[in-house]
Design a protein around this nucleic acid. Sequence first.
DNA 1: TCCTATTATGCTCACGTTGAGTATAACTCG
DNA 2: CGAGTTATACTCAACGTGAGCATAATAGGA
Lengths: 321, 321
Amino acid sequence: MQDTTIQATKRAAITNQSQAVSADLIAVVIAVTNGEPRVLTIEQAQALPSGPFELGHRSLQSGLRAWVERQTGHPLGYIEQLYTFADRDRTGDERVQISISYLGLTREEHAERSAAHGWRGWYDYFPWEDHRAGVPSILPDILMPRLQAWAGEADDPDMRHDRWQRVAIAFGFDDRHWNEELVLQRYELLYEAALVAEATRSWDNGNRPSIPGRSMIADHRRILATGIARLRTKIKYRPVVFELMPPTFTLLQLQRTVEALAGRLVHKQNFRRLIEQQDLVEETGETMSDTGGRPAKRFRFRQTVLAERAVAGTKLPISRA
Amino acid sequence: MQDTTIQATKRAAITNQSQAVSADLIAVVIAVTNGEPRVLTIEQAQALPSGPFELGHRSLQSGLRAWVERQTGHPLGYIEQLYTFADRDRTGDERVQISISYLGLTREEHAERSAAHGWRGWYDYFPWEDHRAGVPSILPDILMPRLQAWAGEADDPDMRHDRWQRVAIAFGFDDRHWNEELVLQRYELLYEAALVAEATRSWDNGNRPSIPGRSMIADHRRILATGIARLRTKIKYRPVVFELMPPTFTLLQLQRTVEALAGRLVHKQNFRRLIEQQDLVEETGETMSDTGGRPAKRFRFRQTVLAERAVAGTKLPISRA
DNA sequence: TCCTATTATGCTCACGTTGAGTATAACTCG
DNA sequence: CGAGTTATACTCAACGTGAGCATAATAGGA
């Protein structure tokens, strides 16, 4: 093999400086209960489950599973990698901290409640993201004027224009459409405008009150935003919603789950048409009659299509216009 | 702030075991020249540019840029993160190696040639991925029978079926359509079937000749596959192709670039329709007359739409059927 | 029992998108 | 000047998608 040079280079480098690295695993674990999307948290809902990647872990994924189970008692099902970032460690020493974040999906069940950890509705952290009941008032009443002020306070007129354009696109101002996938861009704009608590914590500015929405330690809320954005994108082309569903369900329950995630409503008949024509589900034969109307057929996810669709795609009628 | 517990936990863990971590940055740098997609390599085209993440690096991205420039003399433009994985280090000691891979796009220009590094056509590594001139003969002649044999040699009939189904979906056998995005799945199947050199290197089996296609050290070819897959997906909804184009170009040049990346041809008239109706480009006023036919208008990418489209999406007429 | 509210489910329709093909236009080269 | 080649403008049918109408099946109360 001719890779001797490379391996030698690596070894040399490793022996020098790069050992001053530690790797953290951070989990965004999502479940949907009673039509509300929730995230698994620790530390009084101020942090995501996380812990260092250790020698004992067989892989990044298994390390993550171990940490989440240890900290919350909740076993993980589906997980996928989100993003990796590095920061000069805030603890002071000259160590570099690498954080590898994951998105996990489960159902909220055997979750043992405790004071230290628990499920929190994700809209507690991002109240401007829930458009199921129309545009939330926080948007026109609070965010819009504050962001407008932020854009306007730039010196350069070009920069003012640029700021406002980014804001308008991300938040759907100026007659633009709301795009539910831009969760991260929105959070980052609010951070840049110093409207969220995380942005104002370190340097002291006493006078600017932050906007509604629960905050988290370090950049955990940013990671949560990344996870939500990924999930909102992904449900449109991969059958991941089913990871969040009980074994059997009605189409309305499925729809409510999708709506909870997307933060917007979908056309009922079109939703059913799309789900059924894709052969994603099959009837169990039973019906469910306690929802106040005509009984609904129960469905079950067709495991068979997993192999095919996991690769070939799925569609959901969430408008893109 | 209430994050003291967490920070304490982190510090404790860092001091214990997790310092035995080193982080590598690996780059998949792509350019398209003369209608051929190429990847920047080192070590006689057997490795991707890479190096350890060091204390001196301000961020992961800047560390990566530094390594690529040092090893190849080529400055990077657009880059995005691909994936992070961890492996027990192959150098023997009990260190854990974390690899963070990136996709970079540039134009092959100031690239100083040298024996050690250079641009290599990516289809040298994946000859079965180029369908521009129809289904490459390697698919029916070599891959198909060898994969069939591999599927058939499983003991369990269920496993035989499962193997063949995965193969058929990934490679478009049994009258299925070729899906150019499944680059990684295809490579992984070939690896699982021990048909690529990387899979047979470590344990000795002298008798199974590997299939055509240049190999790389460690898992670099796998990372390249990840990058190609990402790029093939991304050109369909983000205007990243323009990162690979010269300042001005004809629509045919643009089309050829897209085709080179996707590994398949597109309908010319529809391609133009789509590009133009999205206002992605504007005429420069000049024309280009050395292509053997009617002179083509020169176009330039409209930087203006970057802000909007970077977020709002783009479309390319690469059939999904 | 019948009416009302509520959810389930089937079906239609208009419209935009997309794959595919036809028809010209404008060059170069021999 | 005709052949070859590329550019560019249109047309058309099929399909996907958003939206709405209509009917079915249940519970609960008048």
